[in-house]
């Protein structure tokens, strides 16, 4: 059978050589709640010999407003994104769903707004890559030199899987991590039930979906659940924490940034305790 066509394949590749100007789009959620993921991306890219820039004018891709039906509220966010990242060769983001929002919907939001200049700005904006796409497609690496001696299972988030079509790129990256015990997650392609405002508007259904995901995670015996999107991990991790399962959730970037020296990425001081507890994973 021919594979299902990918809706938003990786954009045309900028040259990985020479002076590629890479911008990090941290996303509002990661900036506010999961800065360790951003630090991990910076650590990882620098270890691989690339400089990454953080344009300070960035805020949010507008996904929550767009997906909930608030299209007008989304317009200024799309404009800010296009302006903040103008002039870079590539934008890298540690979120599959935010990458999908920019690639699939920014053009449409601009078009519907009737603002020709905004449409032009969105058209001229640099290509946006989710982390695993950037590493595998743009930089051409699968072994990033990581070390992570733990039992890990991977949840392919829906938007990475179906909107971006990242395929097995994240798994290829994880398989190359030294010391890792990567175990397959049952029902992996099933949605965890986060769905943005769905998690609040239809909380009962959202939790029912999460319950089955948690059961599959526990069945693997993994210590760590990994994914490429902290929003899904916040949801599944919130349930794992409430149930006191002892299973931690970690963004793909944080595992890939880990080395024999330890998993603390670029932080001069330990970041505060959170239920994610990434800092407690001192490797031997």
């Amino acid at each position: 059978m021919s594979p299902a066509p990918v809706r938003n394949p990786s954009p045309a590749l900028p040259s990985p050589h020479g002076t590629m100007r890479i911008a990090l789009f941290i996303t509002c959620l990661n900036d506010t709640l999961f800065p360790a993921t951003g630090r991990a991306v910076v650590t990882l890219l620098e270890r691989l010999g690339h400089r990454v820039d953080f344009p300070p004018e960035q805020t949010c891709c507008g996904q929550m407003h767009f997906n909930t039906g608030y299209r007008r509220d989304c317009v200024p966010l799309v404009r800010r994104f296009a302006e903040a990242f103008a002039g870079y060769d590539a934008v890298l983001t540690p979120s599959g769903s935010c990458a999908a929002m920019v690639r699939e919907h920014h053009g449409r939001v601009a078009e519907v707004s009737g603002d020709e200049r905004l449409s032009a700005a969105v058209r001229d904006a640099p290509p946006v890559y989710e982390l695993s796409e950037f590493l595998v497609d743009v930089l051409g690496v699968t072994d990033v030199g990581a070390y992570f001696p733990h039992r890990v299972t991977y949840h392919p988030t829906c938007h990475s899987l179906r909107m971006l079509g990242v395929g097995d790129r994240p798994l290829a990256l994880l398989r190359a991590v030294r010391g890792i015990d990567l175990v397959e997650l049952g029902g992996a392609d099933q949605c965890c039930g986060f769905g943005g405002t769905f998690a609040l508007k239809n909380a009962d259904t959202s939790v029912a979906m999460c319950t089955d995901k948690v059961r599959h995670v526990l069945d693997t015996g993994a210590e760590v659940l990994c994914a490429g999107d902290n929003s899904c991990l916040m949801h599944i991790g919130g349930a794992l924490s409430r149930l006191r399962t002892g299973v931690r959730v970690m963004h793909l970037a944080e595992i890939l940034a880990s080395t024999e020296k330890g998993p603390v990425h670029g932080a001069e001081e330990p970041s505060p305790a959170s239920w994610r507890d990434t800092e407690r994973t001192k490797t031997p």
């Binding site: 941290i26 900036d31 800065p35 993921t37 951003g38 953080f54 909380a203 505060p272 959170s274 239920w275």
Partner: peptide, 21 residues
């Protein structure tokens, strides 16, 4: 509706942008 069934993360002392700055 979130915390009825799921814990919420505690915001860290320093955001990513503050760390970068």
């Amino acid at each position: 509706r979130w915390t009825d069934t799921r814990d919420a993360p505690v915001p860290p002392a320093e955001t990513f942008s503050a760390w970068w700055k």
